[in-house]
Amino acid sequence: MNELEVTKALKNGDENAFRQLFDLYYDRLVAYIVTYTNDKMSSEDIVQQAFIDLWNAKDKLEEFKSPKSYLYTIAYNRFIDSINSNKRHNKLLDVIYEKALRDRIEEDNEVLEQRIVKMKKIIETLPPKCRKTLEMNKINGLKYKEISEIMGVSIKTVESQMSLAFKKIRKGFESENLYLFLLHLLKKE
């Protein structure tokens, strides 16, 4: 059967004619659509859908015209539909991601504020010299040597006071497994 006979048979619902058109154009259409998608699997999906569309619209075929251009048009339109669908899908994912990120930031800020309050309470329970040493180092940014000179104690004493402060902070946060993170934030030395 030539192409025009195949078209006429297809229009009358002949599945063998459809199979013949499929065999004749499938690989060519996939190659054509791959030039747009750069993805063979999605191109195959698009072409298969184009053939389904051709079958569903077989009564609209013109008997004395080759279905080639019609098939290529259907495949191209299916490709455009897939792009638009992906854009809508990606836009929806972006909205969901943005909302999740905003929720996470709000949640993180609340948790961070709670941890700061807890940290302040722990620091308030430190012995006065230990608290003063910690504040001089972490709040004022002084080095151990500078603290030892100001307080009139040895560097070893400053190290000991800082070690004691870190132990109490670690103990206060051990139930949350966050003390390593907080120590990292506190360590400036």
Rank of each mutant, 00 (worst) to 15 (best):
A31Y: 01
T35M: 11
Y36E: 07
Y36P: 00
T37Y: 07
D39K: 11
M41A: 14
M41C: 03
I46F: 09
I46G: 03
V47M: 02
A50L: 01
A50V: 03
F51I: 01
I52A: 08
I52P: 02
D53H: 06
W55G: 04
A57C: 06
K58S: 09
D59I: 09
K60M: 11
E62N: 12
K65M: 10
S66W: 10
K68C: 05
Y70I: 07
Y70M: 03
Y70E: 01
L71I: 03
Y72N: 03
T73G: 14
A75C: 06
Y76K: 15
N77Y: 05
N77K: 15
N77D: 06
R78P: 00
I80L: 15
I80G: 07
D81R: 13
S82Y: 10
S82T: 14
N84Q: 15
S85F: 10
S85M: 05
S85P: 00
N86Y: 12
N90D: 13
K91Y: 12
L93A: 13
D94R: 06
V95Y: 09
V95W: 00
I96V: 14
Y97L: 10
Y97C: 02
E98G: 01
K99P: 00
A100D: 12
A100W: 01
L101R: 14
I105W: 04
I105Y: 13
E106Q: 12
E107V: 03
N109F: 03
V111Y: 13
V111H: 06
V111M: 14
L112V: 02
E113L: 14
R115H: 04
M119D: 01
M119E: 11
I122R: 05
E124C: 02
E124N: 15
C130S: 11
T133N: 03
L134H: 05
M136V: 05
K138S: 13
K138P: 00
N140G: 01
G141S: 07
K143N: 08
K143R: 12
K143A: 10
Y144Q: 14
I147T: 07
I147S: 02
S148T: 09
E149Y: 07
I150K: 13
M151H: 00
M151G: 01
M151E: 07
V153D: 04
S154E: 15
K156F: 07
K156G: 09
V158S: 01
E159I: 05
E159G: 12
S160E: 11
L164K: 12
A165N: 04
A165V: 01
